[in-house]
Design a protein around this nucleic acid. Structure first.
Lengths: 195, 195
DNA sequence: GTCTATAGCTCGATAGAC
DNA sequence: GTCTATCGAGCTATAGAC
């Protein structure tokens, strides 16, 4: 009950974080969207930052869960594409929070949240393993440090291009994911082997 | 005098927009950073949104100026790389505002600002011409619509990866620009012809 | 529902130029 | 003396917190 309510709150916060960002999101909005009194929110979470942090932890948890169901028999680069494509789908469904800006009051709270930091570490570890594996197999470029690849994948997961293209409503969600994934992995330059 | 003051204000706003984003930026901060009273700001700009809009117009103007000095004898894809690399350098110098979120109060003001919209149109027109030219020459992929390429270039110009890598302070600015440019144009996949 | 802090915004006084 | 520019101080609304 208490747990179910909390789940609904977190879900709402994730959506609002995606739509407006942390600073523009108000806890009045959150309360109104969930359909509870603002004061009730504070029974669940001590403050706005912790509210947002809970949402971020939830997203990281879901990402870790997704890693579990990535087919183990596909190539490491396809595993990476699968994860990034999944994240883009989340964004299209308004379930991917925007990155907090560097000076946001949210940042220190996230850095001090061990659930979040531990989740991020686990995420980076698994993705990092796939990256080096893919590099060893010659599937992704070895001329970029694995860390740069990892950051790039994180950035693509919340790439604003997805939102731009969605707004135009000229393409289906599947097309958007496909195009942005291709531009990321194959690059913008033409390729000898590609069409 | 009045003009010089206004230039200093805009410069400060550009920096703060890059550091904190529109919502987290306060006009008290702007006034303090410029070294004038808050009331004086309102002699120059009617409100916070217009303040930010002036900064955005300034950035677009600078981009258009940069287009003028791009060497005309290089390939269209190199022209595009040059522009995106320049934008990344701006970001590294804290002179590239962050994208406003979709529901920001800044958005309608920007959409109603004819200087901004006209600048953006001119920018898109020139870049679009280079894109189709590069596609016609087989230099960049023709399997993505020009509009998708254009959006992708805009997104790379304020790519958060640049900030991530800068924060680590493990790479020089030139290295960061080079790596992010390569990841964008050559892609993450390994290439037959590359190292 | 109430309290408090703060962010956006404005006004009246002051100071200097002419 | 008038005019303009600037700034300290204050107003109002609202967001976070209880």
């Amino acid at each position: 009950m208490h747990q179910v309510r909390e789940e609904a709150i977190v879900q709402t916060v994730i959506r609002l974080l995606g739509e407006k960002g942390f600073d523009a999101m108000t806890v009045d909005e959150v309360a109104a969207a969930v359909g509870i009194a603002k004061a009730s929110l504070y029974k669940h979470f001590p403050g706005k930052e912790q509210l947002a942090a809970a949402a971020m932890v939830h997203v990281v948890r879901r990402a870790l869960q997704f890693l579990q169901i990535v087919p183990p028999d596909i190539s490491p680069v396809d595993k990476l594409k699968s994860v990034v494509g999944w994240a883009m789908s989340l964004q299209l469904a308004d379930e991917m929070p925007a990155l907090p800006s560097r000076n946001s009051s949210l940042r220190p709270v996230l850095l001090g949240n061990s659930d979040y930091m531990e989740g991020l570490r686990a995420l980076g570890e698994q993705l990092g393993a796939w990256i080096t594996e893919a590099q060893a197999q010659g599937l992704i470029t070895a001329s970029l440090p694995p860390q740069v690849i990892l950051y790039t994948l994180y950035a693509r997961a919340c790439d604003p291009v997805v939102g731009f293209l969605k707004q135009g409503s000229q393409f289906s969600n599947a097309q958007i994911v496909d195009m942005v994934l291709r531009s990321s992995f194959e690059g913008l330059n033409s390729r000898p082997g590609s069409a």
